Computed example of a mutant assay.
Amino acid sequence: PDLPQPLLQPGQSYDYSFPVTTPGTHWMHAHTLQEQQLLAAPLIVTDPAEAGADEQPLVVLFHDFSFKTPEELLAGLTGSAPASGNGGMAGHSMSGMSGMDMQGMSDGQGMSDGQGMAMPMDVNDIQYDAYLANDRTLDDPQLFAVERNGTVRLRLINGATATAFWVDTGSIEGEAIAVDGNAVTPVRGRRFPLAMGQRLDIRLRIPDEAGAWPILALREGSVERTGFVLATRGGAVKRIAPVGDQATAAFDLAFESSLVAAKPLALRSANRNQAVEIGGTMQGYSWTLNGRTWGNHQPIAVRKGERIELVLRNASIMGHPMHLHGHHFQVVAIDGRRFAGAVRDTVWLPPMREVTVAFDAANPGTWAFHCHHLYHMATGMMTVVDYAA
């Protein structure tokens, strides 16, 4: 709210007019906790240069869902109300080792303090009632009809409020071709990370046979999953349980390190470097940027025409998807190692890691910079990029 428009009141309307200049997989959503109540939708901008491509586009929007209101969930997280049962806290604690719930930490859910000592990390802080793909669970997944030997372009959007997913293409090897609406040099694989707010385009070649192939979204650090099914005519569709046999690993930066932008930013030196330390704890549920919460924040000041580098360091023991409004940035370093990474608008920061992103200050205004885990945003992890007059 108020960046720049106030909340849209009941019965009120507002018309927006803007140039459509950036093709790709985008989305639109409320920037309040109303997103938790599914107030979101895809926004796909097709590229005229790809009009002749012989591929079938399929759009899928992922969500996490709770029967509790966002206000109830937030009260449970901040300790102002109990959070028992479904839709409550996942049970992890960050208030030191005492009281630490090790659930979800046995499958690589840990890290080193840099001195050889293992430290627990938190992965999920809310246990949702359901995980959705186009508003459906695996009890009744969406079936997409596909052609034998055809090419499919998955346009995947993680609209979840507090859940990151591993996208698993199963027996079909996929090719990641774009992130956050920006093309990358193709990266082949069968499992790709998709954090809250991020988008991922994957190209698949359907086998030349009758069949059905599930594409699953596996909850990070846990066993829950959602997804959809690609099926040819005559393909046998089997039931898929909404819970897997083994918890997935926590996100790392291996995929991010492998990405190369198809259209990188122009080479130039940065005019301004800004360190941003990401902090916070589950105790009291307070999340900060440079030690400050929203309302006490220090804006990131820029001038039009500058090249800005933000050095993002996660000093907390939970991962954070950091998102900048009004711009796309390029990942230019991970843990100090420089490279020409992806151009995107949301980047994942694992615990105790550092990612440097660069952007050109070409869109004057006051723009939010925040964690796309919306309960982290709501409890402080937000500031603004502010253009000097």
Rank of each mutant, 00 (worst) to 15 (best):
Q5S: 15
Q5K: 11
Q9C: 08
Q12A: 15
Y14C: 11
P19T: 09
P23K: 00
G24Y: 05
L33N: 09
L33E: 04
Q34H: 14
E35A: 13
E35M: 14
L39M: 10
A40P: 10
I44Q: 14
T46S: 14
D47G: 05
P48T: 08
P48H: 02
A49H: 06
E50M: 13
G52P: 07
E55I: 11
Q56N: 12
L58F: 04
V59K: 00
T69V: 03
P70S: 08
L73I: 14
G76N: 00
G76K: 02
G79F: 02
A81D: 02
A83W: 06
A83D: 10
S84N: 15
H92T: 06
S93W: 05
S95Y: 11
M100W: 09
Q109S: 12
D113A: 06
G116D: 10
M119P: 01
M119L: 15
M119R: 09
P120F: 09
V123T: 13
V123Q: 15
Y128N: 12
P141F: 08
R148S: 07
V152Y: 03
R153E: 09
R153K: 13
L154G: 04
I157H: 02
T161Q: 05
A164T: 11
A164C: 06
D168F: 08
V179C: 05
G181A: 01
A183N: 13
G189N: 07
D201W: 07
L204P: 00
R205E: 12
P207N: 06
D208T: 03
P214A: 05
I215Y: 04
E220V: 10
V229E: 04
K238H: 15
A249T: 09
F251M: 06
S257K: 14
A262H: 08
A262D: 13
R268N: 03
N271M: 05
R272N: 07
R272T: 11
V276Q: 02
G279T: 04
G280R: 01
G284I: 05
N290G: 05
N290S: 11
N296G: 14
R307M: 12
E309A: 11
E309K: 09
E309Y: 05
R313L: 07
G319N: 06
P321N: 06
H328Y: 08
F329D: 03
V331R: 01
A333S: 11
R338D: 08
V343Y: 01
R353Q: 04
E354S: 15
A362V: 14
A362E: 15
F369S: 11
H370Q: 15
H373R: 10
M377Y: 08
A378L: 03
T379P: 08
T379S: 05
T383N: 06
D386R: 12
